[in-house]
Structures are given as structure tokens and as C-alpha cells.
């Protein structure tokens, strides 16, 4: 019995592709959903913000692609375990909230000794967290070796909370002369605290 040549070649092609498809089924199967656009409600308590912050870090923020919590050995990025106890004293003159904000809005301005720069600016696309989301992340970071204190009304040098515009200038860290360009549109961003996450920036672009 002889099988005709085209059938033999066809069989080989099908078997080869079949084999590679099979290999493709053996590896872990994970479907990555686009980040959820969860609205940050204005009435979140600090405890709620911790939970939301953790979710943001796992999902949309992509933080755990590089950062770890509670891992030692050769690290790519600084481990975040107990980071809150270090944050307050890391840079003189910066409170822990200010330090966290600085490392999120301007990550290259201070590099933890022993690491290479490489963290993207988190409030810009492609990650593009909103100011409110970043506050939640800070709340969660504070629980790593400390207690969360921030609320959605907390202002820092990169963000002025809408209700807190009058008391913001007396804030000892807000140095008006040293404002970064990132802070330029706070009024526009701040006017709707209920705006969906990433709404002001990528959302509008999508409609161009």
C-alpha cells in the first residue's frame, strides 16, 4: 500500500503544526485582561484605599512585574517589604508620603543604592495611574511596615487635593519654586475626583 505523495506531505505538515500546538497547550495558560477602569469613589476610607491600592499594584499598575514583597537574594528592583519604615528616613526632609510620591511621579530622581534606574513614570501612559489611584497605592505602601495615614484629601507636592487647595501652600513640603511640569494641570485633573481612572489622559486620546 502506498500513500500518495501530497497526502504524505500534508500529513507531515499537519503533524508538525499539531505538535507545536500541543507544546503550546502544555505551558501555563493565562489570559491577561486589560486593566479594569475602576472609579475611585470620593468617600473611600483609608482602609478601603489600602485594599484598592493593593489591587492597583497587582493589576493596572503592573508593579509586581518588577517589585517583590518579602523576597531576598538577587533582585531586579528594590523589595517593598517593610518599605514604609524606610521611606520616612530615606531622603532628608521628605516625609514618607512625599518620598513615595516622588518615587512614583519622578522615579529617576532618586535611585535606591545598588539598583539601576528603570522605573517608568507611573502617572503617564502606558501605565497612566490617576492621582487618586496613586494615593491608594501610597496608602497600601504605608501598611508595609507601618500604618496607612493618607486619605483622598491628602496633598503632596505633585498633587493638590481639590478640597485642600487653600491649606496646601502652608504644607511644609510644597515648595512652589520647585514644582515639576507634571503638576501643571492639577486644576483640570482635580476638578472631578470621581472621574474614572485614567480618564483624563488616555481616555481622551482614544477619542481623537
Amino acid at each position: 500500500m502506498t500513500i500518495p505523495l501530497p497526502a504524505r506531505i500534508g500529513l507531515l505538515v499537519v503533524l508538525t503544526t499539531g505538535f507545536y500546538t500541543y507544546v503550546g497547550q502544555l505551558v501555563p495558560q493565562k489570559e491577561v485582561q486589560p486593566p479594569q477602569e475602576t472609579a475611585i469613589r470620593a468617600d473611600l476610607t483609608t482602609a478601603d484605599m489600602v485594599t484598592v491600592g493593593r489591587q492597583i499594584m497587582e493589576g493596572k499598575g503592573l508593579c509586581f512585574t518588577c517589585h517583590t514583597i518579602g523576597k531576598s537574594g538577587v533582585l531586579r528592583f528594590p523589595d517593598l517589604d517593610g518599605v514604609a519604615s524606610r521611606a520616612a528616613t530615606r531622603e532628608p526632609g521628605l516625609s514618607d508620603v512625599e518620598y513615595f510620591a516622588k518615587s512614583i511621579y519622578a522615579p529617576d530622581s532618586f535611585i535606591v543604592p545598588g539598583f539601576n534606574p528603570g522605573m517608568p513614570v507611573i502617572n503617564k501612559p502606558p501605565i497612566g495611574l490617576t492621582d487618586q489611584e496613586i494615593l491608594c497605592v501610597i496608602a497600601y505602601l504605608q501598611t508595609l511596615g507601618g500604618t496607612a495615614t493618607v486619605t483622598l484629601q491628602t496633598s503632596h507636592r505633585y498633587y493638590t487635593a481639590p478640597g485642600a487647595i487653600p491649606p496646601a501652600p502652608p504644607d511644609e513640603k510644597a515648595e512652589p519654586g520647585e514644582k515639576l511640569p507634571l503638576t501643571l494641570p492639577p486644576a483640570q485633573k482635580g476638578e472631578t475626583p470621581k472621574a474614572p481612572a485614567a480618564g483624563p489622559t488616555p481616555g481622551k486620546k482614544g477619542e481623537v
Binding site: G70, D81, G82, S85, L144, G145, G146, T147
Partner: peptide, 9 residues
Amino acid sequence: RTIHPASPP
């Protein structure tokens, strides 16, 4: 599981 939990200050 991390075996040694980090303690708060």
C-alpha cells in the same frame, strides 16, 4: 508562602 512575616515597627 513567605516563612518570615515582616513585623510592623
